[in-house]
Amino acid sequence: MELVTIDDVKAAADRVREWVVRTPLLPATWADPERPLWIKPENLQPIGAFKIRGAFNTLARLDEPVRARGVVAYSSGNHAQAVAYAARAYGVPAHIVMPEDTPEIKVEKTRSYGAEVVLCPVGKREEYADDLVEKTGAVLVPPFDHPDVIAGQGTAGLEIAYDLPDVEVVLIPVSGGGLASGIGTAIRALCPNARIYGVEPELAADTTEGLAAGHRVNWSVEDRNRTIADGLRSQPSDLTFAHLQKVIDGMITVTEDEIREAIRVLAHKSHLVAEPSGATTMAAYLKGAAVPGRTVAVVSGGNINPQMLADVLTA
Results as ranks from 00 to 15, higher is better:
P292I: 04
T136A: 03
E104V: 14
F56W: 12
A60M: 11
V71C: 11
V254R: 01
T255C: 02
I6F: 03
E159P: 01
G288L: 12
E116N: 06
E108R: 15
P292R: 11
K40A: 01
G177Y: 09
L232S: 01
T295R: 03
P147Q: 08
D7V: 05
A274V: 06
L171G: 00
H79T: 13
A55T: 13
A297V: 07
D14F: 05
V9L: 07
G157L: 01
L309G: 14
T23H: 04
L37F: 02
D148R: 04
E42D: 14
V21Q: 12
V83F: 08
G123N: 10
R15D: 06
R195V: 08
V296E: 03
H146I: 03
N303E: 08
G182A: 05
E200W: 01
A186R: 10
G184M: 00
I252G: 01
T5H: 04
Q235C: 00
V174N: 09
M98F: 13
E42R: 02
Y90H: 15
P276V: 06
D148H: 09
A267S: 15
P27W: 04
R294M: 07
V167G: 04
V9W: 04
T185G: 07
H79K: 07
A213N: 05
V247I: 07
D311M: 03
D7A: 12
A156Y: 02
P103V: 11
L211M: 05
F241Y: 04
T295V: 11
V149K: 00
W38H: 15
K287I: 14
L244S: 02
H268G: 00
P103H: 08
G177I: 09
A31L: 07
S234W: 01
E104K: 14
V170T: 12
V265H: 05
R216V: 01
D206T: 10
A262Y: 05
S75K: 07
T314Q: 11
K40I: 05
S234Q: 08
G123M: 08
S234D: 10
V312E: 02
V141E: 02
S181H: 09
A297N: 05
V16Q: 04
I96L: 11
A49V: 13
V66A: 14
E126K: 15
A129D: 12
R226E: 13
L44I: 09
E64A: 15
T255S: 15
P41E: 07
G91A: 12
H243S: 00
D238F: 04
V221T: 13
P65G: 11
L140M: 15
Y90A: 14
A180V: 13
P121A: 15
R15I: 08
P276F: 03
V167H: 13
V66W: 09
W38A: 07
Y74L: 13
L119P: 00
R15W: 03
V247N: 01
P27Q: 13
P46T: 08
T253G: 02
G70T: 06
V169G: 01
N303Q: 03
V107Y: 04
E222Q: 14
V296F: 04
S181I: 04
T185Q: 10
G288P: 09
L244W: 03
V167C: 02
V118H: 14
A290T: 06
T281V: 08
Q307L: 12
T281M: 04
A11G: 06
D63N: 13
V170Y: 06
A84D: 08
D206P: 02
W38D: 00
P65M: 10
V71F: 08
W30C: 06
V299T: 05
W30R: 05
L26G: 00
V141L: 01
D166E: 15
C191W: 10
G48D: 12
